[in-house]
Amino acid sequence: MPPVFRFAPSPNGYLHLGHAFSALLNFDLARQAGGRLLLRIEDIDATRCRPEFEEAIYEDLAWLGIAWETPVRRQSEHFAAYSEAIERLSAQELVYPSFESRAEIARLVAKRETKGAWPRDPDGAPLYPGTARSLSPEERERLIGEGAPFALRLDMAAARRRTGGLNWRESGEGPAGETGEVAARPEAWGDVILARKETPTSYHLSVVVDDALQGVTDVVRGTDLFWSTSVHRLLQELFGLAAPVYRHHRLVRDEAGHKLSKSTQATGLRELRAKGASPADIRRLVGLP
Rank of each mutant, 00 (worst) to 15 (best):
L235I: 08
P11I: 03
I282E: 01
D45H: 10
G65D: 03
A91I: 10
G276F: 13
S98T: 06
E54W: 08
L39R: 00
P97L: 04
F239G: 00
R250V: 10
S263V: 07
P9T: 07
P137L: 10
A183F: 14
Y96D: 05
M156T: 06
S134K: 14
P71E: 14
F79H: 07
D254F: 11
D121C: 09
H248N: 03
T201P: 01
E181H: 05
R50P: 05
I193E: 03
L143P: 01
Y82D: 05
R162G: 02
L288W: 06
E54S: 11
R153S: 04
E55G: 09
A212N: 10
R270M: 05
A8Y: 01
E104I: 12
G116W: 12
L89C: 08
R185K: 14
S278W: 06
I193K: 06
E198G: 07
P71W: 14
R196H: 02
G257T: 10
L39W: 00
C49T: 13
E93I: 11
R247A: 05
P126T: 07
A80H: 14
G174C: 13
R142C: 02
M156K: 05
V4N: 02
E198F: 05
W118A: 07
Y128Q: 08
V220K: 01
R36G: 04
P137S: 13
E69F: 13
P97H: 00
E237N: 13
C49V: 09
K197A: 12
E52C: 10
L143R: 12
L154M: 12
L17K: 02
L127M: 10
R36D: 12
G35R: 05
Q214A: 09
A125T: 08
G130H: 02
A67C: 12
S90D: 06
E181S: 08
G13C: 00
V231P: 00
I57H: 03
H16D: 09
A148T: 13
T70C: 06
A117L: 07
R50Y: 07
A277S: 09
M1F: 07
S90K: 12
A110K: 04
P149H: 07
L213A: 14
L260C: 09
E77I: 06
T217A: 04
Y246D: 03
V95W: 01
R36L: 14
R73E: 08
K197P: 04
L143W: 04
S98H: 01
S230R: 03
P2W: 09
A151N: 00
P2A: 12
T223M: 12
F150H: 07
V252Q: 07
L61V: 11
N26G: 08
L225T: 05
A33P: 00
R270L: 04
E87C: 06
M1A: 10
